[in-house]
Design a protein around this nucleic acid. Structure first.
Length: 908
DNA sequence: GTCCGAGCTAC
DNA sequence: TTGGGTAGCTCGGAC
């Protein structure tokens, strides 16, 4: 068959369907004693297709369709011509198949055809004429037929339909539709095999499908559609998830809602839930064929706009989720925010005049609260921040949503994410007209200020215009002589004063490190002189925006390098010229621009961050570590001491001004000696200092563990040097030197990790003996031998795979057909982590992968690793072919690319 | 998204 | 109430 002709004549209520397929046999049926065409069209319960054991991919099964058409017609005529029997057959039924003419048989010599002409019994359908809708439906069926049959021309009322393939059929649906940007819809199309053909595009109004099973239009879809849809959606799911890490949760049906799917398939003996065959119900496993979509098609699927549309939708959803975190209207009373001391007038008509003081930590809050005693609590509220605020600039949606601090600030101030605050009037919708940041007057305090500014600027740049953010500064040094007292708000200013004041030694200086240093009385003094301590931030648009972005955008890492470098050069230049350092807060400073804040204040933090995080090239130590060593040399060369106590001693003897918790972790870090930590531990670990099971995180509390200087340390850091190194002074106290001078480069021995601002460092460990040999070579003027990283106690291998890259492999061996043994893991792959992240999923299988191993047993000690793994012989064989190291993930790489060390502190 | 570690912090 | 443990956050680079 290659031609179908359909005519619909609503005026005369006649429809005819003609095709040139093989005619119906014009013979008499042996049993029933009537002609076959008559049987097919005029007698119920006859069909040649009852046998379900035969697998057929045709439409009808029980032979009802044509007969029901006859029953619901006032007139029904069949003409069929059959070349084989050289006969033509014609018969007409009337009155709903109740009357019939005798069949007319005539001789015939042309080619086969069959034609059915019928007049629907309009009365039965409660119609008077074939209405427009019905004609349209029938017309559509004509197009359907044209679309789903291959190589068949379809004529409708004498005109050939412009459809020659399933794809062109699908395109008819889409020809008037465009994407949002006016571009035509992108269509993914694939002929999967001879039974399946699939088209897909984006849908704007929920899931849509057009599908055919064995040429039957399944307008409600069914299992065949689900079958394809599942494959498509799971692919989309992967892509979207990859694109949207940490965003809103997305469910498969939400993706499905953007899909418009066209399926044309052949299924063996399909089943339906009704005679109209709108919904195919056969289970996928009985289809008799499978359709695995090609990568090319799936790529088309992901690039047809669905992913973009879903991400846009998700962004919108994210916005509205964030918006939900805000209160929709201004409340005068807030509930459920612990630690908030709300201003009495917050959220009332006076809210524009209210100021929220944000403090660094709870203790600073107490200070502010005691200050409120002076200025009153009607217009001032206080809320403590806990440590470092989230950098919202490139944070994931989830992170912002879940961040308690950010949400609280938004709620307290009454901020709306959707509001742009373009006019000064719009600030009246807020509960507070201003926020005032009050942090410690140190670099980390500046950082916290910066992070808050970053948060406001990123979400509501306009607020900055209206001086929404200001800060409260406290003195950093106070000098007093008898009853006189002077406050300084920056160290350079103090130094200038010292230079200009001849008898400055007669003054007593007190440094205020942290807000906690100030007494309650001093707090009251600060607040009574609000004018002096309140600093406004001025916003001038682009300049300030750029500065804030420079400091906090993840994309500006390179710019930060340049920023810090030029700052360092400028500082050096000023020093050489005998100028004092630039400072921001002088005696009379009342306002600063954001640009100045970033470039003059925050830069100090960024620089300090590098100074404390990036080790010196000379001794491989960071200042914190050097302070520990300094103290250990001084006091604990042969004496065991509790780590917690040593931290106290370090703070005392070396003027360590930060939290003792970090110091204790630094001490523990220096003393660890498990595989992957130090090659030569400078301190002795006496007690639980952690093991390779948890990467050292299993160290006992600093109260319980003891340490003392390791005997080797004094060999590396020779006594004689103690009098030669350049000691530093803090507040007139002699503290640790700029650097120690070990006899071999310790930065190579123990490696180093550090994360600063603009730069970071990551150095592997090298073998002390290799280093010594190389140094001897250098002393003798020979070429040095390139070294590869080496870790004490590591029994795996480290090989160079390309310049500056090394492969670190554990040890894995096959014991017998279904047993393997892992006896070493790569450096910094901790036993417990490995077990949880690699072996457990292999044992239980994941969503995507079936279980690979049957069982594993552990025989580790604190220093050695031993997993004995049981697995099926065939799986082991396959794993071996693929490479055991790869399958069991016991190979990692380390790179020599990021070896930043501090050279600029070398003074010789 | 995770890790690394010297910093800030609170529950 | 106190001791002990847990938790959030920054920062850059490598996976």
């Amino acid at each position: 068959m290659n031609c179908i002709k359909i005519t619909i004549d609503p005026e005369n209520n006649v429809i005819s369907v003609w095709n040139n397929g093989k005619g119906i046999p014009v013979i008499e049926h042996q049993k029933e004693k009537m002609f076959v065409p008559e049987m097919i069209f005029g007698h119920l319960l006859t069909s040649s297709n009852f046998d379900d054991t035969q697998k057929k991919v045709t439409g009808g099964r029980n032979g009802y369709g044509a007969k029901l058409c006859n029953v619901f017609s006032t007139k029904f005529t069949v003409i069929t011509a059959n070349k084989e029997y050289k006969k033509k057959f014609k018969q007409t039924w009337t009155n709903n198949m109740s009357k019939k003419t005798d069949p007319k048989i005539s001789e015939f010599s042309g080619s086969d055809f069959t034609e059915i002409t019928f007049s629907p019994d309009l009365e039965k359908f409660k119609m008077t004429v074939l209405d427009k809708d019905t004609v349209a439906l029938l017309t559509r069926r004509a197009y359907d037929v044209a679309g789903v049959t291959k190589g068949v021309k379809v004529y409708l009322n004498g005109t050939k339909l412009p459809v020659n393939s399933f794809k062109s059929y699908c395109e008819l649906y889409l020809k008037d539709k465009t994407m949002d940007d006016g571009a035509p819809l992108k269509i993914a199309h694939e002929v999967v095999n001879d039974r399946w053909e699939v088209c897909l595009t984006i849908s704007e109004k929920g899931f849509q499908q057009v599908s055919f099973v064995n040429s039957i239009a399944t307008t409600k879809g069914g299992r065949h559609v689900d079958y394809i849809c599942e494959q498509v959606v799971s692919k989309l799911m992967d892509t979207v998830k990859k694109k949207n890490k940490g965003g809103v949760n997305i469910k498969p049906f939400q993706l499905k809602n953007h899909v418009w799917l066209f399926v044309n398939c052949l299924v063996e003996n399909p089943t339906f839930d009704s005679q109209t065959k709108e919904n195919m119900t056969l289970q996928a496993k009985k289809f008799g064929s499978t359709a695995s979509l090609s990568e090319k098609f799936l790529k088309g699927v992901t690039s047809c706009g669905i992913v973009d549309s879903v991400t846009t939708w998700m962004k919108f959803k994210q916005q509205s989720e964030l918006q939900k975190k805000c209160h929709s209207s201004k409340h005068s009373k807030l509930k459920g925010i612990p630690k908030l001391d709300d201003a009495n007038d917050a959220g009332t008509r006076f809210s524009r005049d209210c100021t929220l003081i944000l403090t660094e930590g709870d203790s600073a809050k107490s200070l502010a609260v005691s200050g409120l005693g002076v200025i009153g609590r009607d217009r001032y509220g206080v809320f403590p921040l806990r440590g470092k605020l989230l950098n919202v600039r490139e944070a994931s949606h989830k992170q912002i949503m879940d961040n308690a601090e950010i949400n609280n600030i938004v709620k307290i101030v009454g901020l709306q994410y959707k509001n742009k605050y373009e006019t000064e009037d719009s600030l009246k919708t807020l509960r507070y007209g201003k926020v005032m940041i009050m942090t410690d007057q140190d670099q980390d305090g500046s950082h916290i200020k910066g992070l808050l500014i970053n948060f406001i600027q990123y979400n509501w740049p306009n607020l900055l215009k209206y001086h929404f953010v200001e800060q409260f500064i406290t003195p950093i040094v106070k000098v007093s002589k008898q009853k006189e007292s002077l406050s300084f708000y920056s160290i350079p200013e103090f130094e200038e004063w010292m230079r200009d004041t001849e008898n400055w030694r007669q003054w007593k200086a007190k440094y205020y490190k942290g807000l906690g240093t100030s007494t309650m009385k001093e707090a009251k003094d600060y607040f009574s002189d609000m004018n002096r301590h309140r600093i406004m931030f001025d916003y001038h648009g682009a300049d300030d925006d750029a500065a804030i972005e420079l400091a906090f955008s993840k994309k500006k890492v390179e710019d930060r390098k340049e920023w810090l470098t030029s700052w360092l050069e400028e500082r050096k230049r000023r020093k050489e010229a005998g100028l004092s350092d630039i400072y921001l807060y002088g005696k009379n400073t009342k306002r600063v621009t954001f640009n100045d804040f970033i470039n003059k204040e925050l830069v100090l933090f960024s620089n300090a961050d590098n100074e404390r995080s990036i080790p010196s090239a000379v001794d491989g130590l960071k200042p914190g570590q050097r302070k520990v060593l300094f103290t250990a040399f001084k006091k604990y060369e042969n004496k065991e001491i509790k780590v917690a106590q040593m931290a106290g001693a370090v703070a005392e003897l070396s003027a360590y001004h930060h939290g003792e918790a970090s110091l204790m972790s630094t001490i523990i870090n220096l003393a660890q000696n498990f595989v992957g930590s130090n090659n030569i531990n400078l301190l002795q670990p006496i007690g639980q200092f952690g093991t390779r099971l948890h990467g050292g995180k299993d160290a006992a509390s600093p109260r319980y563990i003891f340490t003392t200087l390791s005997p080797l340390t004094r060999i590396l850091f020779n006594h004689c040097d103690d009098n030669l190194v350049a000691y530093q002074y803090d507040d007139n106290q002699k503290v640790e030197p700029v650097w120690y001078c070990p006899i071999i480069p310790m930065v190579l021995v123990n490696g180093s990790d550090g994360i600063g601002t603009g730069w970071s460092t990551r150095m592997p460990n090298y073998g002390a003996r290799d280093i010594v040999k190389n140094i001897k070579r250098m002393l003798q003027g020979e070429e040095i031998v390139p070294m590869i990283p080496s870790y004490k106690g590591f029994i795996g291998t480290i090989e160079e795979i390309e310049p500056n890259r090394f492969a670190v492999s554990g040890e894995i061996a096959v014991v017998d057909d279904n047993t393997i043994e892992i006896t070493e893991l790569p450096i910094r792959t901790w036993t417990q982590t490995y077990k949880e992240q690699v072996l457990e999923p292999m044992l239980h299988g994941t969503d995507k992968t079936p279980p690979l191993i049957q069982d594993y047993k552990e025989y580790h000690t604190d220093t050695t690793v031993k997993f004995v793994i049981q697995m099926a012989a065939d799986k082991l064989l396959r794993a071996e072919q693929e490479g055991l190291h790869k399958v069991f993930k016991i190979q990692t790489t380390i790179s020599q690319a990021n070896q930043m060390v501090r050279l600029n502190c070398i003074h010789i």
